[in-house]
Write a protein that binds this DNA or RNA. Sequence first.
DNA 1: ATTAGTTGCAACTTTGATGTTGCATCTACT
DNA 2: AGTAGATGCAACATCAAAGTTGCAACTAAT
Lengths: 204, 204
Amino acid sequence: MATANQSRQQTRRPLRADAERTVRTILEAAERVLAVNPAATMEQVAEAAGVARTTVHRRFATREALLDELTGWAARQFAEAVDSARPDATPPLVALYQVTANVLRVKTSWSFAMNRTFEEAHPEAARIHADIRVRCVQLLRRARDAGVLRPDADLDWTRRVYYALIHEAAAEIDGGDADALATKVVDTLLRGFGSPAGATAVHT
Amino acid sequence: MATANQSRQQTRRPLRADAERTVRTILEAAERVLAVNPAATMEQVAEAAGVARTTVHRRFATREALLDELTGWAARQFAEAVDSARPDATPPLVALYQVTANVLRVKTSWSFAMNRTFEEAHPEAARIHADIRVRCVQLLRRARDAGVLRPDADLDWTRRVYYALIHEAAAEIDGGDADALATKVVDTLLRGFGSPAGATAVHT
DNA sequence: ATTAGTTGCAACTTTGATGTTGCATCTACT
DNA sequence: AGTAGATGCAACATCAAAGTTGCAACTAAT
């Protein structure tokens, strides 16, 4: 099993410092460009990264390889953003703020690398995302047990809405720091927009 | 101004009934296929529609033309879904439910046609979407004035969250009828997931 | 029944993106 | 200063998708 996976975690010999930087530049440019146009060409990625197209091909054998590394790279960044908030060790509400802020800081525009279909295509990323999903639900459960969430909250639906809110907030990352946005996201998640007393009683 | 736009609203001579059906079949297939893979080929679209590739090319001169018509078609469906709910004529809360349910009914998976960049590319669709956005904010303002929304609700942020909730709910359209989903969406929008009394007081 | 319109199929051309190579130039590291 | 590594450039080969055409078989509408 350990041997079967060698194809991905290929131990490429260490790159020189400038080359390492180039790789990151390319990945960032790819994320930016592909988020807008998923069908963007290698040429466009290269241009956005400020390098020649051949350089991109030297670092990433094929277009597929580029997409794969991008997917894995984004997943790992995502995981680190979550981990560094220590969501299992702090009170649920604090954890929610911290995780949200951290993820918003990382997620320049995860629209592309996040929405790719993994499963077969990239098992590592699939595993990471699945893991984070589980931990997110755990956190939400803790929040519910602590009385932060309503007792009847559907945790899966809650998680999906939470993701969507982060995604939406990330779109305006330019117009506000991560902490302020995190506050807005968590506030919206918990309270919604209805007036507390108000006309919600129309239900009956 | 009226003459300048003729390029789009090209008055193509009426198609025979079966051909008209084929066009719709292709558009629906295109939406389905492109939602999953925006880089899908004409071949794949044709296959999904159950027609030959040449037929697709006969109805849509170029790939661009197909995408354009798809964009316009989706926008018009969207507008009709909103209109038929008469959102300006009913009490705001009722309107919210009706609009939500109607849109959910139409939006099989508007992920593709909705997220395209219009503006320059497709002025008609851009206009329709802008118009709906405005009316959505108007509806939300009426809701706020009626006490359904909190007085301090940021209407633009509310609208974006509302869109995101509909989008999220549409992903599970298979597992529930539009009305039930609409209830869930509006409920979430108004109340969020926090416990009414509860720990939200941590703010202070 | 006739006709005009529609579709599938096969065979093509064109186009653009991908991927490769060699060489000159430059730069990080020792 | 010397060397291995990195990049840009130009020129190439390959290939898949886009777009076109002609023809035979079929079908909606009158």
